[in-house]
């Protein structure tokens, strides 16, 4: 898959309305605060409809209330134009001129963004890891995307019921729906984690060469085996707190090296390598699904000081049809070079 052009209006500090990208390695060079990460973030948003972490109000240029990002994607079987209108709190997605949802974009376009902040995937809060899993699964399976949205809705409804005076019948209905959807979500997650773990373990070994084995599993805090039992076990707590305290929305991904939790015991470097391995798994699974490589977006490769990881990243970029790589200095190989300064991007 190729990101042919990226357009934007009022996206953070960016000033250039349009960027034509080449096949191979596109390099974006600039000083600190020039706007490199902003270009890659805008590209990721335009290719996927997904805004990693941020709120829309934050990505709109200060003082503006409307903005836009757009991507022209070339696949083997055709070209798609994605337009995303941005207003505080709302994205308006159009796919080839038709109103669409983020899950419609996942059918025609895919991108993976690798940034220095990825280490937070390991050391940050469980919600970051759940988001990694959920957003990847939603892109791999439309069914998961729909089920997950329904599940979240049921949790919201159920929580509202727990906060008020719930009739017993009403609560049992929402609990049944919760268990039904929760079980499906869990089953799909477990299948995906198995695949993610296989790929991540292989790439961990390729990068680190320390002979350690990377394991990934899902932890749900409670020993009970099924969701129905867990719900019963926490009935008192949820009535007291007015929220659903068990279920897929509380589960966490646990990453281990030779059986020891990286979150608890790992070094900073091991965490970075493990998070990179998760991104590689994302890249490979999307590639498998589309039978085409996703657009690879590598932010700030020059901040990567570890020789193994740096070499691995550049290898990844060199062996994919198209990558966009940013840094304060250019990497050894470069097919199309841009320089950024004060939000202005110019082809070299």
């Amino acid at each position: 898959m190729l990101l042919r052009s990226l357009s934007q209006l009022n996206y953070r500090n960016l000033l250039s309305p349009r960027l034509e990208l080449a096949e191979g390695i596109n390099v974006i060079v600039g000083n600190n605060a020039a706007g490199k990460s902003n270009v890659l973030e805008a590209a990721y948003l335009a290719c996927t409809g997904d805004l990693p972490g941020g709120k829309i109000s934050e990505v709109l240029r200060l003082g503006e209330v409307e903005g836009f990002v757009g991507a022209r994607i070339k696949r083997i079987d055709g070209i798609s134009n994605i337009d995303i209108g941005l207003t505080p709190g709302k994205k308006i997605i159009r796919l080839d001129g038709q109103t669409a949802r983020a899950l419609d974009i996942a059918k025609v376009s895919a991108a993976v963004l690798i940034t220095p902040e990825d280490a937070d995937l390991i050391h940050g809060s469980p919600s970051l890891r759940r988001h990694y899993l959920d957003s990847l699964l939603a892109k791999l399976s439309r069914r998961y995307a729909l089920l997950h949205r329904e599940y979240n809705r049921v949790v919201e409804q159920r929580n509202a019921l727990l906060k008020g005076r719930a009739g017993e019948l009403s609560l049992s209905i929402w609990s049944a729906k919760f268990v039904e959807l929760g079980n499906e979500i869990m089953a799909m997650r477990l299948r995906a984690i198995k695949r993610i773990a296989e790929i991540a373990n292989t790439s961990y070994a390729e990068i680190a060469d320390d002979g350690k084995c990377l394991g990934i599993s899902l932890h749900s805090g409670l020993a009970a085996s099924n969701l129905q039992e867990k719900l019963q076990a926490t009935a008192h707590e949820e009535q007291a707190r007015g929220v659903t305290v068990v279920g897929p929305h509380r589960d966490d991904l646990v990453l281990e090296l030779d059986g020891y939790s990286i979150q608890a015991y790992g070094s900073r470097g091991e965490a970075r390598t493990a998070s990179l391995a998760l991104r590689v798994a994302e890249y490979r699974l999307l590639q498998e699904k589309h039978r085409e490589t996703p657009v690879l977006l590598l932010d700030d490769f020059s901040s990567e000081l570890d020789a193994n990881r740096r070499e691995y990243l550049l290898d990844l970029a060199a062996n994919t049809p198209q990558a966009v790589v940013s840094g304060t200095e250019p990497p050894p190989r470069c097919d199309q070079r841009f320089s950024v300064s004060g939000g202005l991007v110019s082809a070299f």
């Binding site: 329904e150 809705r153 409804q157 019948l169 209905i173 729906k177 959807l181």
Partner: peptide
């Protein structure tokens, strides 16, 4: 077939 519609149907079905 939204979650609210399903829940309503289940509720009525029980009664």
């Amino acid at each position: 077939t939204t979650v609210e519609g399903e829940a309503t149907a289940m509720y009525l079905a029980r009664l």
